[in-house]
Design a binder for these strands. Structure first.
Lengths: 217, 217
DNA sequence: AAGCCTTCTGTAACACTGTTACACCCGCGA
DNA sequence: TCGCGGGTGTAACAGTGTTACAGAAGGCTT
């Protein structure tokens, strides 16, 4: 299929018009510009000034192409490390680090999840999380729950905010709806009529979750 | 466009081959069977024994069709009510109710989020959540944070588990990877090598989050 | 030198998608 | 009887992923 199956490393006969990496890079750019739906093999070929079949020769097919991009992103999560003094702070640092990396690839994060690669993606950080959770005094199933709860919370949060961010105009925005009807607690209604501050909400909710998980019992 | 614009209610000249509702129902069935990607206008027309243009006449276009389905689901969330005695239990009942309804429409939940309709979808339950949070003693921005944190947590959890469930074979499953390398805490590693019990994980993480949010300070 | 083999690219097609311009039927009101 | 308008059908357009097939061009063996 691809040129990786060549057993003896031999100099290329002719200067290739495109390389596998060039295709991946162009695909990444295309996705960043137009979203995943905007990634078409023909557009990719046109942008590289090459016929469609060349793309197929280099990366197999569209599915494999996207898989490759996903893999690249997953490997970007390998370097996460905890910082801070107490376990809660260290787990929080991991969580915010995860969110930061995930938000750098807003288009790919959904793909990772759709491909069921969430566990694989989280494995490196899962080790780090497990280590911190263990040093916080948790063990066995309870510790595993804590690790997974943090993982689900972080990626779930990013999945939600990914689309909440970029919704240009909500049909009836939650803000309007809260202001339209009088509620019992005016202060609460006013607060809920405010646009979501994702950074703060993530900090608040994650800290609450982590603190509760680590100090439970 | 559609037949809804007929001002005087007049008996149909001829018995229509399909109705708008029949199209919506068939689309729902098609999506449940083959996923959102399996919903094509031609398949829909063929299943109804009708030409493609009839579908367009009744529902406009594919986007509008899906929007309609999403709206139907959103309205399914109107009837959620809290049960239980203390605020924590009542909020948890809302959260589990939300998750239950969302899981009944696994294919649509992603669409709702992609369309940026998550706020609108959650508005009814948001009122209920706000009421419970207020009666727990929280007010103003802090209460709003609690409400939104629960929302993000629930929908994020469902978004994650939606695809974690049905991944047939993970490339390297997290289970294998944990068993392959020896870890510091054998019990933790063993627990993490176990498949995720989503129901239990949801209960544990949500209770931890809610309890922390409601008793903060 | 001749031929082959591998790598890489291009042409052209297939089946599929959403969408629409257009013609047609047919029952009701005038 | 005529027209109108709701509802349907035919056929096309452009776009998609994918592939069978035909080349080109350099290194290898004979």
């Amino acid at each position: 299929m691809t040129q990786e199956t060549a057993k003896p490393v031999r100099a290329p006969r002719r200067a290739p018009a495109v390389s596998r990496q060039a295709v991946l890079d162009a695909a990444t750019r295309l996705i960043e510009e137009q979203g995943v739906a905007g990634l078409s093999m023909r557009k990719l070929a046109a942008r590289l000034g090459v016929a469609v079949t060349s793309i197929y020769w280099h990366v197999g097919n569209r599915e494999a192409l996207v898989d490759e991009l996903v893999q690249e992103m997953v490997h970007g999560l390998d370097t996460l490390a905890a910082t801070g003094s107490d376990p809660v702070a260290r787990v929080l640092s991991l969580a915010t680090g995860l969110r930061r990396v995930l938000r750098e690839h807003p288009h790919l994060i959904g793909l990772v999840n759709e491909r069921g690669m969430t566990p694989a993606m989280f494995l490196p950080s899962q080790r780090a999380l497990a280590s911190e959770v263990a040093s916080a005094g948790l063990a066995g199933p309870r510790a595993a729950d804590a690790v997974r709860a943090v993982q689900y919370h972080v990626i779930g949060f990013v999945l939600v905010e990914r689309h909440t961010d970029r919704s240009p105009e909500q049909r009836p925005s939650a803000e309007e709806l809260w202001l339209a009807e009088p509620a019992a607690d005016a202060a609460l209604a006013g607060a809920l009529a405010t646009p979501v501050d994702a950074d703060r909400l993530f900090a608040v909710s994650t800290e609450a979750l982590v603190r509760a998980l680590l100090t439970k019992q």
